[in-house]
């Protein structure tokens, strides 16, 4: 965990001007000759010879241009040997970091991306996502790609937008129309350095196909149709009805369905669609009769095979198209209708008795034909005679037993109607069934003729079991006793009588027994009696809620009404049952390095270096680890946070060094880091936490230039006895911890922070209570944490400038105390009490607070704003402190953004 300075070199350039980049020294060199050796990648491992060492002086030089994309860092193992080649010291490792330059352009994963989107899609619908990579350092501006659509074809109007960070292409509006443009082509540029002018770019193409939806209503080619057909005729292709639809051909959005709205009640017509041509073929599947229907008006409608898209669903109105059908007459002649007739012949019918008449019907008039003559066709036993003009059938002779036997009890003959003018003949069938009952050989008995039904009917019964069966000639029993022939058992209809089976009777008896048992049991069970009476019901005491505690199995009983005010901690999505979580950043990204903040400072203040304005951004997929709240979490908290983010620290130092290196004006390095590490390992119980100080090793005189708060913390961190440390500013801090200039403090926290006052004085111990204002104060005093360990939230905002104490704080501007110091110490907050007093951003996820002290060169103008980032989800919090020249005395323009 030790923070080490890492040597740095920049890729792609000659770093020899920075030689020696490091030097090693052993105290053993004082009394013997020491030979320094280095080894490792870049020295005696490929790539060889990047670093060389002066064996006598220990100076390490870099000799070659390095490529970060090949070797992001080197680890040089340094050794000190005596003349015998033996190690005088334990080897040390020097980490040489290769700083990234923007020498790699973005590379799209595909040269042409292909996507598709439905027309009429809502605005902001995701179409596709582009992917590009940059080989430069991850989480660095050099590899931060910004996407931009630079061209669209067709270019009528921009239809797509792209998320510059994610590469997601979405619809700009809901006007995409496949019928207008079926495909779009986009040219997208990806530029690193977040799209900055100094970035490198690459381009790709995106082809977006517009998918069809059923957003066009079909219609018929003609508004009406006239058709003429002959009666009694069938047609397989009577007419063709073409449908027009603008949707994509051959799809269900285009294929039409023509349907009858009215006029086809006789189901004479059908329409069959040809899905290749979208033409409906009108068919006649049932002949029309001119004598019944001379004209017909069909009303047809059309729709698509697919449902209409919701965007036009309301526009669709059923439109009827009229198809006028004219039926033409055809001379049909005479026919027997019906074609078969059955007659009754009684036993007493003599010769020439009239059996009946069987006349042909003129189909064109619907009346008995007057143009035909009748003759008998088949006439078994020569039984009948027909009148040629009237069609009346008579018996030729009385039926004899011999005829009856010869006909096998059944007569079936035919009659012909002959139209001599049309040369047409029509045949009718005559049936006489001869029943043998009552027949006497003497010929005096009756010939029973009964009418035979064409299809024998069956009677359907529902049997008691619910089963339906069809049976033949069942005889229905008349309940009045009549109408039966007595040959079959009368059918018993269900429900007429109720009979209980043995099981039903048993159930009834059981029911009565149970009813009788209930009062018996009530008598036997003495619920209020003394316990211990053996097995029985658990006695329930009176005036209680029984044995079940309403507040769960353990814990105190809540006060009345508390059940409705149980506070459930909000668990972030994906979290489990724990309450604390922190995020381990794997990378740090300083977006505005050399960026916006530098501009805010103004040209004259750029000499002070850079500022991590954006703080630390959490990675896209942070590792979330969680902790239990309470005092037991100390060790696990430590494991969770694992101290500082080393990447962040290394970035910070290296970039700081280079920032200073490239500045034109010299500026003392007054930067230091104060790292609050709440409740890390080795923190004594009861302390607020650990404070680490990182600064110069050899020269501690810089402490003189620190502000009092930083200085105090530095003293504590460095182990300097504060008792003997000279107080450069005896007025610091105000003895009264209350804000001495409330209106000014209020002005500083114009965003709504309440004045931090004695409400949290007990916890504001870091600096104020341990500042060397007296010999009795040596160390941070253990405090009584009202919220328990880890529940410390301290915020301080104070000023010493302006009208407050100008005589005290107008020191050398370079080395003077700070005028405005904003410091936040944020620890895990498990309790919500402090939120009421301190409007702090919820930094439960923060694990470190880094305070940067900044000295702004004299003569500079006041910054217009003092901004504090709110890195809620970051693991490192960067707090910026500025020293502002207090000559103007105007502090009202400062504002803090929480």
């Amino acid at each position: 965990e030790w923070i080490k300075y890492a040597a740095a070199c920049r890729e792609g350039e000659d770093n020899s001007k920075r030689n020696p980049i490091a030097k090693i020294h052993s105290d053993c060199a004082a009394n013997q000759q020491v030979t320094y050796r280095i080894s490792g990648v870049g020295i005696d491992q490929p790539p060889y010879g990047i670093f060389v060492i002066n064996q006598k002086t220990g100076e390490i030089n870099i000799t070659s241009i390095v490529d970060r994309e090949v070797t992001p860092y080197f680890i040089i193992v340094c050794r000190a040997l005596n003349l015998q080649g033996q190690d005088l010291e334990r080897p040390l490792e020097l980490r040489v970091r290769v700083l990234d330059i923007n020498d790699n352009p973005p590379v799209f994963s595909m040269t042409t991306f292909i996507g598709q989107i439905e027309e009429n899609s809502n605005a902001n619908t995701l179409v596709m996502k582009l992917n590009a990579t940059d080989a430069d350092e991850p989480n660095n501006l050099n590899s931060k790609i910004a996407f931009k659509i630079i061209r669209q074809e067709p270019s009528d109007s921009p239809m797509f937008i792209i998320n510059r960070y994610t590469g997601e292409i979405r619809t700009m509006n809901n006007f995409l129309d496949r019928e207008q443009y079926g495909q779009y082509s986009l040219a997208v540029k990806g530029s690193d350095r977040d799209g900055g002018a100094d970035g490198m770019s690459a381009e790709c193409e995106c082809n977006i196909k517009i998918l069809d939806v059923n957003d066009n209503i079909p219609y018929l080619e003609h508004s009406s149709y006239n058709i003429e057909i002959a009666e009694n005729a069938l047609h397989s292709d009577l007419a063709q009805i073409r449908v027009i639809d603008l949707d994509e051909e051959y799809t269900d959005n285009w294929v039409a369905v023509i349907f009858f709205i009215s006029g086809n009640e006789g189901n004479w017509f059908e329409i069959e669609m040809n899905e290749k041509t979208n033409v409906g073929i009108l068919k006649v599947v049932k002949p029309l009769d001119y004598e019944e229907t001379k004209n017909l008006q069909l009303s047809i409608g059309v729709r698509n095979k697919a449902e209409f898209h919701h965007s036009i669903m309301s526009q669709y109105k059923l439109t009827a198209t009229v198809v006028s059908v004219t039926v033409t007459n055809v001379v049909e002649g005479s026919v027997f209708r019906p074609g078969t007739k059955t007659y009754v012949v009684t036993s007493n019918m003599e010769a020439n008795s009239k059996v009946g008449e069987f006349v042909a019907i003129d189909m064109d008039t619907g009346l008995p034909s007057t143009t035909v003559r009748y003759v008998m066709g088949s006439n078994p036993a020569d039984l009948l005679v027909v009148d040629s003009k009237t069609g009346i059938l008579t018996l030729r002779n009385q039926v004899t037993m011999e005829q009856y036997q010869m006909l096998n009890k059944r007569y079936q003959g035919t009659i012909l109607s002959i139209d001599d003018s049309l040369h047409r003949t029509c045949t009718g069938t005559i049936i006489i069934d001869l029943d043998g009952s009552g027949w006497k050989t003497e010929g005096t008995s009756t010939v029973s003729v009964q009418t035979t039904k064409e299809n024998g009917e069956e009677t359907t019964f529902t049997e008691p079991g619910g089963e339906t069966s069809s049976r033949g000639p069942y005889v229905i029993t008349d309940e009045n006793g009549g109408g039966t022939n007595g040959e079959r058992e009368p059918y018993q209809r269900p429900g007429d009588n109720v009979h209980f089976g043995p099981a039903g009777i048993g159930l009834l008896i059981m029911g009565f027994l149970v009813l009788g048992l209930v009062p018996f049991l009530l008598i036997c069970c003495d619920c209020g009696g003394a316990p211990g009476g053996g097995a029985g019901f658990e006695p329930v005491p009176e005036c209680s809620d029984g044995v079940i505690h309403p507040w769960a199995a353990e814990g105190p009983q809540p006060a009345p009404g508390d059940l409705t005010t149980i506070c459930v901690p909000q668990i972030p999505p994906g979290g489990g049952v724990t309450m604390m979580e922190c995020i381990d950043n794997s990378g740090v990204y300083t977006n505005d390095y050399y960026g916006r903040e530098m501009q805010d400072l103004g040209g004259g203040e750029r000499t002070t270096g850079f500022e991590l304005m954006e703080g630390v951004k959490a990675p896209a997929a942070p590792d979330i680890c969680q902790e239990y709240s309470g005092t037991l979490r100390r060790n696990s908290m430590r494991e969770c946070r694992e101290g500082l983010n080393m990447n962040f620290m290394e970035n910070y130092f290296c970039q700081k060094a280079y920032a200073y290196d490239e500045e034109d004006e010299g500026q003392p390095s007054n930067d230091c880091l104060l790292i609050y590490d709440n409740e890390s390992i080795a923190s004594p119980a009861g302390s607020v936490g650990c404070c680490s100080f990182i600064g110069e090793d050899l020269d501690e005189s810089f402490l003189e230039t620190l502000g009092p708060k930083f200085k105090k913390l530095a003293d504590i961190s460095l182990g300097i006895d504060t008792e003997y440390y000279p107080d450069p500013d005896p007025s610091w801090p105000p003895r009264n911890t209350e804000p001495v200039c409330p209106q000014q403090t209020t002005g500083l926290v114009a965003s709504g922070h309440p004045t931090v006052s004695h409400h949290v004085g007990a916890t504001t111990v870091i600096s104020e209570n341990t500042y060397p204002s007296g010999p009795s104060v040596h160390h941070p005093m253990p405090i009584s944490d009202p919220l328990g360990y880890g529940n410390v939230t301290v915020t301080e905002s104070y000023t010493t400038s302006g009208t407050l104490k100008p005589s005290v704080h107008l020191h050398d501007n370079l080395h003077g105390p700070n005028v405005v110091v904003t410091e936040r110490v944020v620890g895990p907050i498990s309790g919500a009490d402090l939120h009421g007093m301190l409007e702090m951003p919820d930094l439960r996820d923060g694990s470190n607070v880094i305070v940067t002290e900044r000295v702004i060169a004299p003569g500079s103008s006041l910054p217009t704003s003092l901004t504090i980032p709110t890195p809620i989800e970051s693991s490192n919090v960067v707090v910026t402190e500025r020293v502002i020249q207090p000559t103007s005395g105007m502090m009202g323009s400062l504002s803090m953004h929480p």
Binding site: E1, W2, I3, K4, Y5, A6, A7, R18, P20, I21, A22, K23, I24, H25, S26, D27, C28, C78, A80, L88, E89, R90, L92, L94, K656, A657, Y658, Y660, D661, E663, E665, G666, Q667, S669, A682, C690, C691, S692, F693, I694, G695, E696, D697, L698, D699, I716, S717, L718, G719
Partner: peptide, 26 residues
């Protein structure tokens, strides 16, 4: 003591500053 010092380039007045790693914790 065996130590590594790393060169710092922020000194513009001609002096070279050397940093040793150090972190003190309390």
């Amino acid at each position: 003591e065996f130590q590594i010092q790393v060169r710092d380039y922020n000194a513009k007045n001609g002096t070279i500053k050397w940093h040793s790693s150090r972190r003190q914790k309390r």
